[in-house]
């Protein structure tokens, strides 16, 4: 069997290597770079709209209220915890302790679901109680538009990450992802940490500044 075929046959952790890392990782980094540029475009557009003279843009902290910022700060903490849980998944897998890796992965997924739940609660609260008051007060309509676009786009990434991690968990449970397939987990982790990384920027620019 040719080496290339053998590598593909060995399972999800295997893969050809180029530039000294697996092609799977190169693929994920390429996707993340593209995705980061999309977020960069959205954030740059947000900055352009917000700081245009006479844009009538409310201060987010005043618009969301103190409780809103506290809740979102807590949500940020949840995502940070979920991110470190993902680190533990890989660490336990590399130790060969798949039971603990599965538990950490369940914690990672739970963190993502809690984040989405809190975001859904926040959106509902803002739609029903807040934003129509801001519009009545004459503030710029681009404020809620950019807010929902940025947080919604990120929320979609979290939802996809939860599905991705759930598939990984199913693979671990079925025995298809074993301690030898650390590359598979590492690539999933790259995506999940990227979601955390982007939220740090969205939280700062949309909620705090």
């Amino acid at each position: 069997m040719a080496p290339k075929e053998a590598s593909i046959m060995e399972g999800p952790g295997a893969g050809e290597e180029s530039l000294g890392v697996t092609n799977g990782k190169i693929g994920m980094w390429t996707f993340l770079v593209m995705d980061a540029m999309t977020f960069a475009g959205l954030l740059a557009g947000y900055a352009r709209l917000r700081w245009t003279p006479d844009s009538l843009w409310p201060f987010p902290i005043e618009a969301f209220g103190v409780i809103g910022i506290q809740l979102t700060a807590f949500n940020t903490f949840i995502l940070i915890c979920s991110s470190v849980a993902m680190v533990h998944v890989l660490a336990e897998q590399m130790r060969g302790n798949m039971d603990r890796a599965e538990k950490w992965l369940m914690a990672t997924i739970a963190g993502g679901l809690i984040f989405l739940g809190i975001q859904a609660f926040e959106w509902t609260h803002l739609i029903i109680d807040k934003f129509h008051l801001l519009m009545d007060a004459g503030y710029n309509q681009n404020f809620p538009a950019t807010f929902y676009l940025l947080t919604g786009f990120h929320g979609a990434h979290v939802a996809i990450g939860v599905i991705y991690n759930t598939i990984l968990l199913m693979g671990m449970r079925s025995g298809k992802v074993t301690e030898e397939h650390t590359s598979t987990t590492e690539i999933a982790g790259l995506y999940w940490h990227f979601v955390d990384l982007v939220w740090i920027l969205v939280f700062t620019f949309v909620y705090l500044i």
Binding site: M37, A44, W51
Partner: peptide, 16 residues
């Protein structure tokens, strides 16, 4: 690092 370079140029370029 590429997206950060892109983001910097884009933000500086379109900032009012």
């Amino acid at each position: 690092c590429a997206p950060f370079v892109f983001a910097t140029f884009l933000t500086v370029g379109i900032f009012p």
